[in-house]
Amino acid sequence: MCTWNYPLIQIQRQLGPAAAVFYDRDIYTETFNIAAQQAFIEQNAETVERLLRALVKAETFVAEHPDAAQTLMAKLAQLELSLVKDVWANFNYEVALDQTLLITLEDETRWAMNNRLVDAAAMPDFRQHIHLDSLARVKPSAVAIQR
């Protein structure tokens, strides 16, 4: 069974020594992407950059104040603090844009094409749909994607 980390820890606690849990950062990851229409980005560049600056500020807060971040997470998600502390190391709180996004988009598109879920005959060039500039201005080191 594959489940989100918080229910997993709850299940593990209930099963005690009968539970066998295997972690592998390369098998399953939770990645959150920010998506917007190009026109919105162009018309609201300052808003987009403010959002990205807030995310980078949160990233820094998590790195510098893990206990406070865990307490905040527990409160906002309405979870036991001990549960949040148990799974905290399984997450990577990082604002980044790298080749992984392109690889994932291409892998999923290839799967959809092979299963005839889309009419596309050729792989789209996803690079033309990924906006790098705002994040590059806010946190240049976060952008590691080929144009």
Rank of each mutant, 00 (worst) to 15 (best):
M1G: 14
T3F: 12
T3N: 12
T3C: 11
W4R: 08
N5M: 13
N5L: 11
Y6G: 05
P7G: 13
L8C: 10
I9V: 15
I9N: 04
I9H: 02
I11N: 10
I11K: 12
Q12P: 08
L15A: 07
L15G: 05
P17F: 13
P17D: 10
A18H: 13
A20T: 10
A20D: 09
F22S: 05
Y23T: 08
R25K: 08
R25G: 05
D26T: 13
D26P: 03
D26N: 14
Y28H: 07
T31H: 07
F32L: 15
N33L: 15
A35L: 11
A36P: 05
A36V: 07
A36C: 05
Q38K: 09
Q38D: 09
F40N: 01
I41P: 02
I41L: 06
I41M: 04
E42H: 02
E42N: 07
Q43D: 03
N44K: 14
A45D: 01
T47S: 11
T47W: 03
V48C: 02
E49N: 07
A54P: 01
L55R: 06
V56I: 06
V56P: 07
K57N: 13
K57H: 14
E59H: 03
T60E: 06
T60A: 09
E64L: 00
D67V: 08
A69E: 01
Q70E: 06
T71C: 03
L72S: 03
L72D: 07
M73V: 01
M73R: 03
L76G: 01
A77I: 03
A77L: 10
A77N: 07
Q78I: 04
L79Q: 05
L81G: 04
L83Y: 08
L83D: 01
K85M: 03
D86W: 02
D86E: 12
A89W: 11
A89T: 09
N92A: 11
E94L: 05
E94Y: 03
A96Q: 12
A96H: 02
A96C: 12
L97I: 01
L97C: 10
D98Q: 00
T100F: 00
T100A: 15
T100V: 00
T100L: 12
L101F: 00
L102E: 07
I103N: 13
I103V: 10
T104R: 15
L105C: 07
E106D: 12
D107W: 07
D107S: 13
D107E: 13
D107V: 12
D107F: 11
T109Q: 09
T109V: 10
R110F: 13
R110G: 14
W111S: 11
W111L: 13
W111I: 10
A112D: 10
L117W: 08
V118F: 12
A120S: 13
A121E: 15
A121Y: 05
M123W: 04
P124K: 09
D125G: 10
D125Y: 04
F126W: 13
F126R: 04
R127A: 14
Q128F: 01
I130F: 02
L132W: 05
S134P: 12
L135H: 01
R137D: 01
R137Y: 00
R137G: 01
K139G: 04
K139Q: 13
P140M: 07
A142I: 15
V143F: 14
V143K: 11
I145N: 13
Q146L: 06
Q146N: 14
R147H: 09
R147V: 09
R147L: 09
